[in-house]
Design a protein around this nucleic acid. Structure first.
Lengths: 222, 222
DNA sequence: GATGGTAATTTTATCGATAAAAGGCGCGAA
DNA sequence: TTCGCGCCTTTTATCGATAAAATTACCATC
């Protein structure tokens, strides 16, 4: 039924581990014992260890000298650094995406903007409950926004940072952003991008990230 | 005598492998067989495999589905992409380094500029022979230039790209850059940086990279 | 009750072995 | 000759076992 099931033990463990890390199921700072993980995922030491090595290079896992691995610790400082890096990196990625974007890009952007605008942020109107469809559409929006940047390297770097930021969102488990109209922010960013006003679009995107960061920082610290 | 000898098999293999990759001792595209490498470095399959996994995440090695690893292929296209990414990334890293650089940074920069200016590029005056001291001083110059950027994440990303570029330099084995005064280019970049003229410094740095790239591209293709 | 040292237990890092998969070779048929 | 097919070899991915290192638990002493 699915596309990938027998793609090799290592791949599977790697995907699973990354997912558990990103969703906060493996808490930041948690000691990652090879045996335990192996038992959990039904794999031996080699694949687990290999997956951990990759994830360490990606920054989701930390190697501690000769005493194993741990889930990358989360802190307000690390988070601030992450947001700063993201703002600066996406400044150039978005600018170049806008510069190089063709008609097909514009159309992709229009589509994801439309989709995002139609999906409710929360499943129920009264109490906030994460809507997975919105999450997907939101990720797609940001991905498409940057997708016309000619440098795949830079796009991948931005993607890595986005994942790390998502992890913080999962950890902090922020429900809502009072006093913000997130939909309007997305709207404005898309507008500026389509109008090819790179400087405006970048400023709006950075403001968007920094606003989100403000709430997350509060949730993390408190 | 040295600082690190018994730092664990994996670390050692990792360092060794990376070095062999960067110096071109392991040719681009070469099949990397776990057994062979293990024999070469005196290690078993696990450490080698683990090291290869990390290096794959760093982009120096490629995983081929379920059929092992190979040294990352080198091509003119990949090189062009690398240079482009580097120019764009370092645009912001250098700018922020200049913005945030304090007196200590200025002084570090003055020192490495001075050192670089005093060391001959080639060991002998007649026939060009790489001078390892110059290589070191050159790397230090570029590293210090960016060192005041407050984002460690971005600095590390720039460092990764620098390594990949160095690999191409080793592969292409370019002897000299006729018609260029590389020393003067470094001088001008440092001058602009010390004068806090970020835009000028960035433009000069990018021109510096693009000029080098031109020669390398020629050497690669020819 | 705190402290220091030693023994028991965990955990890591690494090896060697092995099943399964991929690749290559040679032979026979068209 | 060229193509296809099955056999033999190599290589991968993975497991289970193990020595060394680190942690923890425990106990006797002050």
């Amino acid at each position: 039924m699915q596309e990938n099931d027998d793609a090799g033990m290592t791949q599977r463990v790697h995907r699973q581990l990354r997912s558990d890390l990103l969703l906060g199921r493996l808490a930041p700072g948690l000691k990652l014992k090879v045996q335990t993980l192996g038992a959990t995922y039904g794999a031996g030491a080699s694949p687990v260890r290999e997956a951990l090595s990759s994830l360490a290079a990606e920054g989701l896992v930390q190697r501690i000298d000769g005493r194993g691995f741990r889930a990358a610790p989360a802190s307000v400082e690390d988070f601030d650094e992450l947001v700063r890096a993201r703002c600066w990196l996406e400044e150039v990625v978005l600018r170049e995406s806008i510069t190089a974007g063709d008609v097909a890009w514009e159309e992709r952007l229009v589509v994801v903007r439309w989709r995002l605008s139609r999906i409710p942020r929360s499943v129920s109107a009264e109490r906030f409950t994460h809507n997975p469809d919105w999450e997907v559409a939101h990720a797609a929006f940001h991905q498409v926004l940057l997708s016309a940047c000619p440098s795949a390297t830079l796009r991948e770097m931005a993607e890595t940072l986005r994942e790390r930021a998502e992890r913080y969102r999962a950890i902090a488990n922020v429900a809502a952003y009072p006093g913000r109209d997130v939909a309007a922010e997305h709207e404005a960013i898309a507008e500026a991008a389509l109008a090819r006003e790179a400087a405006t679009a970048v400023a709006l995107l950075q403001a968007h990230y920094r606003a989100t960061a403000g709430f997350l920082r509060h949730a993390l610290a408190g």
